[in-house]
C-alpha cells in the first residue's frame, strides 16, 4: 500500500572540502491520500527533505520511490507549492496556471478543455474572479491560493507544500488551511507539508513527522493524528485528542529537542 517510499535517505553538502551532513537515515512510507506534516526547528533540513522528494536536490544515498518509480529529477507529478508563491509577476493569474497546464496537458487536452481545466482549478481555490489580475495586484493569501491552483492544475500524484502559509497573517492562514482541507477532501490528494506551526500540523495532517535538530537531522518521532475528518477548527479547540496531539508535538519540540541556538 506504500505510495511514496523514502528509504534510508542521507543528504550532505560538500562545500570547499567541508562536508556538512544535513539529513541522516530518513525512512518513511506514505500511503495514497495521506496528509503528512513535517515539523522541526529551523535548520533541521525540512526544506531539504522536501526538495529531495521534489527532485530539485539529489539524494546522497538511499532512495525515494513514487509508485515504484525512483525519483531522480523534478517533475509535474510532484508539484510544489512554494513558501513565497513563486508566481511569475509578468503573467496574469490565468496565465500563471496556464503555463503549467499548457506544459503538462498541451498534448492530451484540447484548447477548450485546457481552459475549462484552468478555470476549474481557479474555482477550487476561489480565485476565478481575479483571473486577469497580475500577482502584484492581489494579496499574499490570494497569491498563495493561485500557487496552490497552479500546483493542483498539474494533477500531481503528490502535492508538496513548503511552509505554504508561513508568510501569511493568522486569519488568512486559517482561511487557507480550511481551503486546503476542503480541496483535500474533494480530490483526495496525497500531501506532504512543511510547517513551523504546531496547530497547523495537528489540524491538517494524518501523521506528523517530527525532525530532530541538525546537523545530521533524523526523524525523531512520527505521531498519528487520529481525528475524524472533516475537521472543524472550532470543535477541535477543546477536543481531547487534538489537545493530546498538540501537547505531544510541543513536548517533542520544546522539551526533548529544544533548539539550542535559539535559547
Amino acid at each position: 500500500m506504500t505510495y511514496l517510499r523514502i528509504d534510508n535517505v542521507d543528504k550532505h553538502f560538500d562545500r570547499g572540502g567541508v562536508r556538512s551532513e544535513v539529513l541522516k537515515g530518513i525512512s518513511i512510507d506514505i500511503a495514497r491520500g495521506e496528509v503528512i506534516s513535517i515539523i522541526g526547528h529551523s535548520g533541521c533540513g525540512k526544506s531539504t527533505l522536501l526538495n529531495l522528494i521534489a527532485g530539485l536536490t539529489e539524494v546522497s544515498s538511499g532512495g525515494i520511490m513514487l509508485e515504484g518509480n525512483e525519483v531522480n529529477g523534478p517533475g509535474p507529478e510532484r508539484a510544489v507549492v512554494f513558501q513565497n508563491h513563486s508566481l511569475l509577476p509578468w503573467l496574469t493569474v490565468y496565465e500563471n496556471v496556464n503555463l503549467a497546464v499548457a506544459k503538462v496537458f498541451g498534448r492530451s487536452k484540447t484548447g477548450a478543455q485546457r481552459h475549462e481545466w484552468i478555470m476549474q482549478n481557479l474555482d477550487l481555490v476561489q480565485m476565478s474572479h481575479a483571473k486577469d489580475k497580475r500577482p502584484t495586484e492581489i494579496s499574499g493569501g490570494m497569491k498563495q491560493r493561485v500557487g496552490i491552483a497552479r500546483a493542483l492544475a498539474m494533477q500531481p500524484k503528490i502535492l508538496l507544500l513548503d511552509e505554504p502559509f508561513g508568510a501569511l497573517d493568522a486569519l488568512t492562514r486559517a482561511h487557507l488551511q480550511d481551503a486546503v482541507m476542503d480541496i483535500q477532501k474533494k480530490l483526495g490528494n496525497t500531501m506532504i507539508m512543511i510547517t513551523h506551526d504546531v496547530d497547523e500540523a495537528v489540524l491538517l495532517s494524518d501523521r506528523i513527522v517530527m525532525m530532530t535538530n541538525g546537523p545530521s537531522a533524523r526523524i525523531g518521532e512520527i505521531l498519528d493524528v487520529p481525528l475524524e475528518r472533516p475537521r472543524q477548527r472550532l470543535d477541535l479547540a477543546a477536543d481531547r485528542t487534538y489537545l493530546k496531539c498538540r501537547e505531544a508535538v510541543l513536548k517533542f519540540l520544546y522539551e526533548r529537542h529544544r533548539f539550542v541556538e535559539a535559547a
Binding site: L56, G73, P74, A79, V80, S86, M154
Partner: peptide
C-alpha cells in the same frame, strides 16, 4: 530568482521554453 528556476524545473520546461517564458 531560484524560485522561477524551480518552477521551470518542476514543469520540465526545455531550454527553448525556459529562454522565452
Amino acid at each position: 530568482p531560484q524560485d522561477y528556476r524551480n518552477v521551470a524545473l518542476i514543469l520540465r520546461l526545455n531550454q527553448f521554453e525556459f529562454f522565452f517564458k
